[in-house]
């Protein structure tokens, strides 16, 4: 009798623990593959990332994150291939913009640099120069960026171009030149979050931490709540802001709340702060919000 009980317990135990164990193993395996995929992305190895994310999605089929990463990388590889053969200039620019968006999202600046060079060679506009300079600044190629922006006629310069020029000059210690740039910059009240962030960078590099704090505070106020945390995280890491980060006003600046009204419904890949999350019975695991990965300092001003 007792033996039978022991056997029954063993069988029941095996039946209940084996599938659980197997599931845990496959999740661990998927997580490992996910890390591998991200490492490939960091090295700009898109094919390797695609393979790893596909294997991760296969190992943990319930996990939306790997499926979505796989789907995006697969798609990006396709558009990258298509870009080489694209003859229509407008379509080329659009596809290149999407590709650049991906590179920036994953901080693959080397690839972005090659793409921006190609784009600037084709378009030769202030916008294409600004994009190239932006990437050069990300990669610390200050001399190249200074050259590029310095070569644009004053009449063709945009606010963004002036700001980047100021940043690169300040980085190179050309403070008088950078100060001169300030007269082309709009008042903080008239600027959007992207311009405000660049202004904070410039003021901070020039040693005016109070003005940098004002610009950054305004920048945070005009950033939508769903993007604010990512923006703040980026600001904390931004080397151009190190003067401000060490300043007493930085902690208070980081407490700034968004003044932008935003629907609580994220309408996106994750239910985020959706008010119905509790009621809609959406219990699926979802991927990280791509917006959270955004490097806000480099986004275009939408104003």
């Amino acid at each position: 009798m007792r033996l039978r009980m022991v056997l029954v317990c063993l069988v029941v135990g095996c039946l209940t623990t084996v599938p659980g164990r197997a599931q845990a193993d496959s999740s661990e395996e998927a997580a490992k593959l996910g890390v591998e995929g991200r490492a490939c992305l960091a090295k700009a190895d898109l094919e390797g990332a695609k393979k790893a994310f596909k294997a991760a999605a296969k190992a943990d089929r319930e996990n939306e994150e790997y499926r979505q990463l796989y789907a995006v990388v697969r798609r990006v590889i396709k558009i990258r291939e298509a870009l080489a053969d694209e003859k229509d200039a407008e379509k080329w620019a659009k596809t290149a913009g999407a590709l650049r968006g991906f590179y920036y999202e994953h901080e693959i600046y080397r690839e972005a640099l090659a793409l921006d060079r190609q784009a600037h060679a084709k378009q030769k506009t202030t916008e294409s120069a600004v994009m190239l300079a932006e990437t050069q600044l990300e990669l610390g190629m200050n001399a190249e960026a200074a050259n590029l922006l310095g070569g644009i006629d004053d009449e063709a310069m945009t606010t963004e171009a002036w700001l980047l020029l100021g940043v690169v000059q300040a980085r190179r210690g050309e403070m008088d030149a950078a100060r001169n740039v300030m007269k082309h910059i709009p008042k903080p009240d008239e600027a959007g979050p992207g311009v405000l962030f660049e202004m904070a960078r410039l003021h901070s590099l020039m040693g005016d931490q109070d003005k940098a704090a004002v610009a950054l505070t305004k920048c945070f106020k005009s950033t939508p709540p769903s993007r604010l945390d990512a923006f703040k995280a980026y600001a904390k890491e931004c080397k151009d802001l190190h003067g401000l980060i060490a300043h007493a006003s930085f902690a208070k600046t980081m407490e700034t709340k968004s003044k932008v009204k935003e629907s609580k419904c994220s309408g996106g890949t994750s239910c985020g702060k959706c008010p119905s999350k509790g009621g809609c019975a959406s219990k699926k695991k979802t991927g990280a919000k791509p917006a959270d990965k955004k490097t806000c300092g480099h986004e275009k001003d939408k104003d």
């Binding site: 798609r75 913009g97 991906f102 890949t269 991927g287 917006a291 990965k293």
Partner: peptide
């Protein structure tokens, strides 16, 4: 419905959920 697209306004890739 299922292919990711690049959101021009938000400037990021939206994978399909």
């Amino acid at each position: 419905v299922t292919e990711p697209y690049f959101d021009l306004v938000e400037q990021f890739w939206r994978p399909s959920p």
